[in-house]
C-alpha cells in the first residue's frame, strides 16, 4: 500500500481520492488501483482490479488533448444543465414570492373616511380614540366596513386635530395617559405632547398628523394613511 491508497471501512485497499483526482487530471494513460464491489458477493468481499483511466481511448479519443477537451466539455455541460434545472423551481418560487412588490394597490376615492361627528369629540381638548372603519383588500379577501386602524381626535382651540395612533419609531400603538395628559408609547418609552410633538424618547419624528375635513357642518372626515416608521419625516406607505 503506498501513499495513494487507504483502507476503507470494509477493510479493502482503495485508492485515496487525491490520487484518483490526480490520476484523472494527469492523463489517460495513468493507471490507478481501483475498487469494484462485486454485486453478487457480500459487501466486505472486494477485489482490486487495474483499470486504465479513462477507457474512452477505445472510442476514438486518441490524443490526450481530445480527451481533456471532451471531459472538460462534459463537466461543463453537467454544470450548465444542473444549474438550469435547479434554477427553474427557485425562479418560479422567487417570482411568486416577489408578488407584493409588483402588485398594484387598489385606490379609489379621495382617501377621506368618515370617522365621527364633531359632538363625539370631547370639548375640553382631551384626545379620544376612534376606530377607522373602511373596506379592506387583504390578498384574496375584500372586507367591507371593518376596522383598518385607529386615530386620536382632539379639539384644539376650536379646531379638530387628527393624529395617527401608530408610533413613528417602530410602529407600536401609542397610548393616551390621562394621568399626565400626554401620549406615551409603551414599547420604547417615547412620549409626546397633545399636539403630537416629541417630549422625550427615541421617536425620530412627532406623531403623524392626518388631513382632516369637516363635511356637512358636523361630520369629521380624515384622510387615513399609514407611514413608514423610522424616518424623520412621514413617508406614506404605498
Amino acid at each position: 500500500m503506498d501513499n495513494n491508497e487507504e483502507i476503507n471501512s470494509e477493510g479493502c485497499t482503495v485508492p485515496n481520492q487525491d490520487a484518483v483526482d490526480e490520476a484523472i487530471s494527469n492523463s489517460d494513460s495513468a493507471i490507478v488501483s481501483e475498487v469494484s464491489v462485486d454485486d453478487r458477493s457480500s459487501p466486505v468481499a472486494c477485489h482490486l482490479s487495474e483499470v486504465k483511466i479513462p477507457a474512452e481511448s477505445e472510442e476514438g479519443f486518441t490524443s490526450e488533448v481530445d480527451l481533456e477537451e471532451r471531459r472538460g466539455f462534459v463537466k461543463f455541460l453537467c454544470i450548465v444543465i444542473g444549474g438550469i434545472v435547479s434554477a427553474v423551481p427557485f425562479g418560479a418560487g422567487i417570482w411568486a414570492y416577489l408578488n407584493p412588490l409588483t402588485r398594484e394597490k387598489e385606490g379609489g376615492g379621495d382617501g377621506f373616511i368618515k370617522i365621527t361627528t364633531l359632538d363625539a369629540i370631547p370639548a375640553n381638548g382631551t384626545p379620544a380614540k376612534f376606530s377607522v372603519i373602511a373596506d379592506k383588500e387583504d390578498a384574496w379577501n375584500k372586507f367591507k366596513n371593518i376596522s383598518v386602524g385607529a386615530i386620536y381626535l382632539l379639539k384644539e382651540g376650536g379646531k379638530v386635530k387628527a393624529l395617527h395612533t401608530v408610533c413613528p419609531h417602530l410602529g407600536c400603538f401609542i397610548d393616551y395617559r390621562s394621568s399626565k395628559n400626554d401620549f406615551f408609547c409603551p414599547c420604547h418609552n417615547s412620549n409626546f405632547k397633545l399636539d403630537g410633538s416629541i417630549v422625550s424618547g427615541v421617536s425620530p419624528r412627532p406623531m403623524d398628523p392626518l388631513k382632516i375635513e369637516i363635511r356637512n357642518k358636523e361630520e369629521v372626515w380624515v384622510k387615513f394613511q399609514n407611514f413608514q416608521p423610522g424616518h424623520d419625516h412621514p413617508i406614506p406607505l404605498s
Binding site: A92, G93, A96, L98, W140
Partner: peptide
C-alpha cells in the same frame, strides 16, 4: 385561486 390566478408567476409555481 389567488396563487393560480392573481399572483405574478403563481401559475408557474
Amino acid at each position: 385561486n389567488y396563487i393560480q390566478n392573481e399572483m405574478t408567476g403563481g401559475w408557474l409555481l
